[in-house]
Amino acid sequence: MNALSLKKGSSRKSAYNLKNTTGDTIETHTLAVLVDNEAGVLARVIGLFSGRGYNIDSLTVAEINHEDNQSRITIVTTGTPSVIVQIKAQLARMVAVHDVHDLTVEGPSVERELAMIKVVSKGDNRVEALRTSEIFRASVVDTTLESFVFELTGTPEKIDAFVELMTPLGLVDVARTGVAAISRGL
């Protein structure tokens, strides 16, 4: 349960203030949650968020240690500072959860997301789509005479920008993985 820093002043206000809390700043945090890779564990985590009214902006999950049977869930969430503290405490006390890391406050971290983007176009638009993809270092993973599927990895913002540029060029479908994140350095 080492993700909990019960520092003084860590939450000035209640996480459950019935009053409108729009005055409080809303922060975005990326949490890495190490869990037992057992049946229902994702439902437990998602159920916690929906049951207590927390936001999930992005969620990814995959087994990372087959021997210890552990998965890593990366959750991007938003809330007031006190709500973020609550979310971490609520996650940490779940029996299936081994560790909670708040990558946003625990020092620098890198975030990446993978997207596949399908663009259907001809003529100039097709040329422009390909040219733009090179600028973004996207790779073409499938092509027909009238379509491309691009694969792009990067920060969510980079993918957003690419999707925006592709929209007038014949974008028809986007598949995104959600964020995976890890701390920098040792």
């Binding site: 909990l4 019960l6 002043g9 939450s11 209640s14 996480a15 203030n17």
Partner: peptide, 28 residues
């Protein structure tokens, strides 16, 4: 909540970390 014990320092002993600072901010 806004009017709960307005002039006190508050300490909270609890075995469940999620109970601490959930509703009322405490000093210790």
């Amino acid at each position: 909540l806004e009017k709960f014990s307005p002039n006190s320092k508050k300490a909270h002993i609890d075995i469940d970390a999620s109970s601490i600072n959930k509703v009322i901010h405490v000093d210790v």
